[in-house]
Amino acid sequence: MKQRFLFGSAIALVLAAGAASGATLDDVKARGTLKCGVNSGLAGFAAPDAAGKWEGFDIAVCRALAAAVLGDAEKVEFTPTTTETRFTALASGEVDVLSRNSTWTFSRDVDLKFTFAGVNYYDGQGFMVSKDLGVTSAKELDGATVCIQTGTTTELNLADWFKTNGITYQPVPIATNAEANQQFQAGACDAYTTDASGLAASRATYENPDNWIILPEIISKEPLGPLVRQGDDQWADIVRWTLNALIAAEDYGITAANADEMATTSENPEIKRLLGTEGDLGAMFGLDKDWAKRAIQARGNYGEIFAANIGEGTPSNIARGLNAQWTDGGLIFSPPFR
């Protein structure tokens, strides 16, 4: 009957003044859906398909969380947010969790009063140039014109990096990624700089991707991850350990397909604890025993999610790189389930 409140929401203004939200977990369970703030469109990370169903790398985190908390990966209401609206949407309670390629920074964590639940993608700013330019390192870009999106941290990173390396550049300010790609391909600038994942995704859409190369230098740290409001530690823990469960699952070789089987056959006590056959980790934060198993079964473990949305072979075609498991020399790592 919430339709009534659409017209009568002025009533809500008056009556519901005292109804400050308590534990987010209780709200989500009572509502029966998880409200997830996502990017309104970023290739590989979040996009609706023709039927209006959202999929992507960031979406998968929401799906896993919904599966863990509500037992159904489809019980998610997606709220598309822009760079401007994302943090207000989270702070005001319009969404329960924001999974929208947002960089974990000091000021966002401390000053904006959010809690980052972890990192699901280690990004960094890179450069793309035309093959004809004959450049193999960003340090050879002295005097180059560089296409850059205005009002982003990339703009500041760029200035810092060129200054540190004692070389000069000419910025070509551009508003959106789409425009930047058009301009760059038309030759308005020698190099285009943005997050490396974005460069890879853009390059994949060019008519002749082989004519463009992404330079090896990564000039900034952009750890992207889901975040929640500060002050509800239980909810922050649920989001953090759901993400960790996906990461640990890849580590232990648990996939969406074999999770049920592993739960019964595995001899590894940590896998047993994770999948709820031994102990009751879920009860410690208000979920049942099978929470992690359901999260893994939603869209697979971390590696499966990566491969399905942005990994090699997909249009984005991004190598694991920094986002490989710690055992493979990457930074992706889950603390123990104990």
Partner: peptide, 8 residues
């Protein structure tokens, strides 16, 4: 508005 209020 109070947090959680769903003002469409």
């Amino acid at each position: 508005l109070p947090p959680g209020t769903n003002f469409d």
